[in-house]
Design a protein around this nucleic acid. Structure first.
Lengths: 242, 242
DNA sequence: GTCTATATTTAGATAGAC
DNA sequence: GTCTATCTAAATATAGAC
């Protein structure tokens, strides 16, 4: 739990030494250690998602990856850095696609602002569509994000990757809800995150409560409820009803 | 991380030996070990909230409590049981008050169903009002709940304490939103939880995003946004717009 | 890049004196 | 009910042979 007070744990290998001699035309380089790196990343993603960062050991992770324990240190340096790389590889993809989707919604709307629904869909779609396809890696990533979302020591760590996305959408919401106070927009974005996180975390609670009527892994079904809920909620912030 | 494979760790002291000879008229018994118990509970609450269950050691907890390490085992048996008791003592209070508040809303509404707002306030009020008063213990409890809310291994553990509350409110929402499909009600309840959790977790993200305009610790302000957001969201589930 | 072996620290849990 | 002292297992991290 407590950080080593000794010298900073410096990975022997620089952060991004891959693809150096790979001025190759296409396809993956797939050199010796790349499959190892990937195995560790995947196993870590799954393990962190299931048990939280502090709930799994590097031993468990490397065992699941089918590689030697020492390779975790060789490829990633510290456990914290491993977590960081697990998050970053998919966060980049989601961020880019969200921003693209928002840009597309803007183009479609012409001179007006995109609707609240369009903005919400641009935000939720890129991540939730991937979960809906039952890709195991993306589902683990979703659980992991939900876990990191609520602990201060991790939100601080991941803010660099996640906050830029936020500001794009907060701006868009501002334009779509001209009557909503500035404060309401920020809180509304947080509530949007919170509602989404309930889908990402997939804890199995909803099947317990509904006795099987709803299912945590039915992301399509959840998305059909999530979009109107969040859109209606955001609109309520912008109205004068309260 | 992994459970001891040996014999189950049985606390030497039975679960609820307190207040036995305390056929006293009023006030707290405050016998020798009770202040120790309380110190440990408080320190554990705070520590679990800050770093998660697996992110703190019993040593840290007992040091913060100002008591000897061995007393954690004596009073609570295992670390898991300590967590359970930390949750249970406040969850009971919140549950009772929520159910009372809902009953009161029913009485006020007469033959009709209480409004969605009234139901939402009956749910959010009992917990968030306590946080709004800046009681440190309740704030830690809030953070902790948000942490437990997203990890399957903990939701299963706490479902016994938290699910009964849920069913009361899901029933109330069913009556308040007669046009909403059954599925929507369950998901709506989950989204309600999710939005609330964003307030409970108090990660500091909203001050980063809003550059200080909104504050994580301004629970009153958050509640003023949360109620219309959630109510509007739930109503949108019950309308035919989507 | 990978493995064996191990250093070092820290964890949860207890035995037994007081 | 509390403390000292410790057991045992498990953690992260690394050195060095291959």
């Amino acid at each position: 739990m407590k950080a080593k007070s000794a010298a900073a744990p410096k990975p022997r290998r620089p952060a991004a030494p891959r693809g150096k001699t790979a001025a190759r035309t296409d396809r993956a380089p797939v050199r010796r250690g790349d499959t190892t790196r990937l195995s560790i990343l995947d196993a870590a993603e799954r393990s962190f998602a299931e048990s939280g960062f502090d709930g799994v050991s590097l031993r468990t992770i490397t065992e699941r990856a089918g590689v030697d324990l020492a390779l975790a240190n060789y490829h990633f340096g510290t456990k914290e850095n491993l977590l960081h790389e697990v998050i970053a590889r998919r966060a980049r993809i989601v961020h880019d696609e969200r921003v693209r989707a928002l840009e597309l919604a803007r183009l479609k709307a012409g001179t007006r602002s995109p609707s609240v629904e369009a903005i919400v869909i641009a935000f939720l779609g890129p991540l939730l569509r991937r979960l809906a396809q039952r890709d195991a890696g993306w589902r683990h990533y979703g659980s992991l994000v939900s876990h990191l979302d609520v602990l201060p020591k991790f939100t601080a760590m991941t803010s660099g990757v996640l906050d830029p996305t936020a500001l794009h959408f907060i701006n868009a919401l501002r334009l779509a809800l001209p009557k909503a106070p500035e404060r309401s927009i920020y809180w509304g974005y947080m509530f949007l995150l919170g509602a989404m996180v309930q889908v990402l975390s997939a804890t199995g609670r909803i099947e317990r409560l509904s006795r099987g009527l709803c299912r945590s892994d039915d992301v399509d079904g959840a998305l059909r409820e999530l979009v109107p809920f969040v859109s209606g909620g955001l609109r309520a912030l912008g109205s004068d009803s309260k």
